[in-house]
Amino acid sequence: MFYPIQLLADWLTYTVFRIASKTLLGDAVNFFIFDTIKILILLSVIIFVVSIIRSYLPPEKIRAILSHKNKYVGNVLASLLGIITPFCSCSAIPLFLGFVQAGVPLGTTFSFLIASPMINEVAIVLLLGLFGWKIALVYIVSGLVIAILSGIIIGHLKVENLVEPFVYQNSINGNIDLPNMTRKERINYALLYTKDILKKVWPYILVGIGLGAWIHGYLPADFLAQYAGSGKWYAVPLAVLIGIPLYSNAAGVIPLVSALTEKGVSMGTTLALMMSVTALSLPEFMILKKVMKTRLIFIFAGIVAVGIIFTGYLFNFIL
């Protein structure tokens, strides 16, 4: 499927730039060109498709779907719908208030808040492009399981008292009748959104793939195995800790991590790092303090972190 891109990369590296093949530099440059073009094409196509789907499911509609569901179905649906919803820490508060005040249960809301940033199309495309569809699928499925279970657990903990009281004092009617998008508007929306995301992530992708290409070419294959191979128990929790401050840079982190995996970091540790980068974000926690007590943020982060660590160990064990 990516054969023409390989041809283009070969031609650019060996003919245009006149770098000798079978050398470290040649390999690194070839790898960089191939991966960059492949990822950018995949990103454009997939973000466009996801945006079109999303134009049919704005948050207001998702809320209407979720507010009528019993809790287990709600957790599953919320996590699935979280996949197609874009998320940035700036939208955490409107989403949280909008959901809870319209009667969506707290556990269901958390399932959504966890799945939405963790399973996003940028992360999926990068995993798909750099690790293949099996790893991308493993990531999606384990992300869903973590979001569903964490939401169910938080729902059972009865922590409504840890939400700031003003949240429940204001209730809103979730059924507002508004115009839908026309077909042309959907396409425009998707094009604009794809352009915005690409504009935002391309520098990270270039740097990530560039560093990755360098590591690929210059570091010995088992360089990191002694520090972060599957035999090292501390690798997974450490990866989760490292991931927390790296929020929103999945675009740069994943290519880098893909190169590290080649040099001996085990797959479960890699998955745990990526989940931590996307799902556990310091800026989001700070923002959520406006609507919930710090204790609830710790409970939320703790449950998700345990889920990620468990996933990391599980896949270190079976992959």
Partner: peptide, 12 residues
């Protein structure tokens, strides 16, 4: 003022 959007029950 994003609070205005929130208080109308909207999220986009």
């Amino acid at each position: 003022d994003i609070n205005k959007i929130v208080s109308m029950g909207l999220m986009s």
